[in-house]
Simulated assay, not measured.
Amino acid sequence: MEKFLIIIINPKSGNGRGEKIWKKVKADLQKRNVPFRSFFTQKQGHAKELAQQMVHMHHENTRGIIAVGGDGTIHEVVNGMRNYMHIPIGFISAGSGNDFARGFKLPKSPGEALNHILGFKMSRSKQYDLGELRPGLRRHKSNYFANSVGIGFDGEVAKRTNEANYKDLLNKFGLGSLSYIFTLLKLSMTYEPYALKLKVDGKEYAFEDVWLVATANIKYYGGGMMICPDARPDDGQLDVCVVHNLSRVKLFFLFGTVFFGLHTKMKEVTMLRGKEITVESDVPVTMHADGEVAGTTPVSLHVLPKEFTVI
């Protein structure tokens, strides 16, 4: 049987951009006589369900599994592929943040992304690291993350941005990444920092007045911010950025520098790196994984070296 692509489309991604982009991609695939099977998501978590079902049923005949959507869509697809990570994963950007495409150096144009996918050869493939997150330390089932995990202020930003009406409005004009900035500015006036304990490869740290802890597999975050400028998805490490003891006034300065990675020079920013990370706090603190709300602390994180192949 001829191998085919499995394509999972989030039609609502980017406020409808997902469906529009898919129409063009579909026409191109048909023109080239490329075998594929396509599926639309209908609810949050559906991309994970579809990926799980399809790779289980067709893993022997699957050429690759492609996500058409945003960072949340590719996050779900990756999590649906547990036990089948040998199948290559492709991505056609249609979201607002699109950090996955930036971090893995994938084409942003749908046409170029499709050409990249169709020209892929397993013999020239490269495997990348994944992160694994387990809320409640060891008591809960783990999830994968390809980009990053944000704990604290940015976890709340992700949560409130995903719930905000202006995200859809900005997506209509192709300015979806600004929705994070709007939420960030609004929340910065009311958010209360917290204390936490952090353990990186067995070494313990204690921080007071923490705004956020970002654990990153790639350098990009929240729509292009370079939260961990040295993070690479092929080094077998996770990079950690802790922002603490920072005044609200200086917080705005940090936001102005983070898009260039210059925040790392501030004394209120601590950069760490390791393979095994745990975060505990006196009160539950919101966190996100690849921009999707992922529960609260405590949490354990670790890297899975060379776990998946990105087309």
Rank of each mutant, 00 (worst) to 15 (best):
M1I: 09
M1W: 09
E2P: 05
F4R: 09
F4A: 00
I7V: 12
G14W: 03
G16C: 04
E19I: 00
I21W: 04
W22P: 01
W22Q: 06
K23D: 12
K23R: 13
K24C: 03
V25H: 06
P35C: 00
F36Y: 15
S38V: 01
H46W: 13
H46A: 09
K48S: 04
L50A: 01
L50P: 00
A51G: 12
Q52E: 14
H56I: 03
R63M: 06
R63H: 03
G64Y: 03
I65W: 10
I66N: 07
V68S: 11
G70Q: 10
D71L: 10
G72Q: 08
T73I: 08
I74T: 02
I74M: 01
I74F: 04
H75A: 01
V78F: 08
R82V: 13
H86A: 12
H86R: 13
F91S: 10
I92P: 00
S93Y: 09
G95M: 05
K105I: 11
L106A: 02
S109F: 05
P110K: 02
E112R: 07
E112P: 02
A113R: 05
L114Y: 01
M122K: 15
S123D: 10
S125F: 09
Y128H: 15
F145W: 04
S148N: 15
G150W: 08
I151Q: 08
E156N: 14
R160F: 14
N165R: 15
D168I: 13
L170H: 01
N171V: 03
S179R: 10
F182M: 14
L185W: 13
E192V: 15
P193Y: 03
K199P: 07
D201F: 10
D201L: 11
G202L: 11
E204F: 06
E204I: 12
W211S: 03
T215F: 13
T215H: 11
A216R: 03
N217Y: 09
I218Y: 09
G222N: 05
M225C: 06
M226W: 01
D230Y: 10
D230S: 14
D234R: 04
V242A: 02
V243G: 03
H244A: 07
L246V: 10
L246G: 01
S247C: 08
R248V: 09
V249R: 13
L251R: 12
T257F: 13
F259D: 00
F259Y: 10
H263E: 04
K267A: 09
T270Q: 12
G274E: 00
V285P: 05
T286M: 14
M287G: 02
D290N: 07
V293A: 15
T297G: 10
L301E: 07
H302I: 12
T309F: 02
